[in-house]
């Protein structure tokens, strides 16, 4: 039994940052990197299923990213995943989620897992695209924003909840193998123990380039292109000036207006 979890190293920006000279991205000095928050839940869900399945079960984490993305894999390995796969090629630096899905589809074909999980979206761009596009390319059953999952390895179907708008959930069954995008709160992601972190350093991480996946020669194309990137007008609060009495009066007005009092 094998579950493949696709994870992403997301980029976090501080409040003050500068754009790249070409106007199509942010100066890389301003980034901090971290494992996508949603992916913690996807990894945890895979680990829980593996632990319930016992001997012979395996969780494999895969990411498409440069060597900074290794940290994301190590984080998942420290929690208990068995091995990692990192795919990178400099030509992937500017591609979109659909292109990433094309790369992941080749990895899934190679690994032939019983289930594929991704986070419901990434915390930096929120495309909510990669996992489902991957399912489309594979022709696999799929469901997005899964907030509860009942899957016994080997079973032909799984039962899941999809978290819909307004807290409503839909209960459905799905044929397996499937690609599921995992929602926050589906479980309580564990923190890696210090021992787990030490062990993660010894776990195998396979590094692949596009040729190794048979994707050389410009086979990985995007469904969109960044024309320009820019800071939006005013992320800054409208400061309410005046004396405390004036400020409070204005605040009361805002409250009453928004509350329809």
């Amino acid at each position: 039994m094998k579950i493949l979890v696709a994870v992403k190293q997301v980029s976090i920006l501080d409040d003050e940052f500068e754009m790249r000279d070409d106007g199509r991205g942010v100066d890389a000095d301003f980034f901090e990197k971290d494992l996508n928050e949603f992916d913690h839940f996807a990894v945890e869900e895979a680990l829980l299923i593996k632990e319930a399945a016992g001997e012979g079960a395996e969780v494999v984490v895969v990411t498409v990213g440069d060597d900074e993305a290794d940290d994301a894999l190590r984080t998942a390995l420290a929690k208990g995943a068995e091995r990692g796969i990192r795919v990178w090629d400099d030509s992937l630096a500017e591609v979109d989620s659909i292109a990433i899905a094309k790369v992941l589809a080749k990895v899934v074909e190679r690994e032939a897992p019983d289930m594929v999980f991704t986070g419901a979206q990434s915390a930096d761009f929120g495309h909510a695209t990669t996992g489902m596009a991957l399912a489309g390319l594979l022709g696999w059953p799929h469901a997005a924003v899964v907030s509860k999952l009942d899957f016994v390895p080997g079973a032909a179907t799984a039962t899941l909840h999809r978290e819909l708008e307004g807290g409503l959930e839909e209960i459905m069954t799905i044929q397996c193998p499937a690609v599921l995008s995992i929602q926050l709160g589906i479980n309580q992601p564990r923190y890696a123990s210090l021992r787990g972190i030490r062990q993660a350093k010894q776990k195998p991480v396979e590094e692949l380039d596009l040729d190794a996946l048979g994707l050389g020669g410009g086979a990985v194309t995007s469904a969109s292109r960044v024309r320009r990137m820019y800071a939006p007008e005013k992320g800054q609060a409208e400061i309410i000036e005046g004396t405390v009495a004036e400020q409070a009066a204005r605040l009361a007005e805002i409250i009453k207006e928004l509350r329809g009092i």
């Binding site: 942010v26 930096d124 761009f125 024309r227 990137m229 820019y230 992320g235």
Partner: peptide
């Protein structure tokens, strides 16, 4: 993009 910190124009 980047948690609402930028806007991106795509074509």
């Amino acid at each position: 993009g980047y948690a609402e910190k930028v806007r991106v124009d795509l074509d």
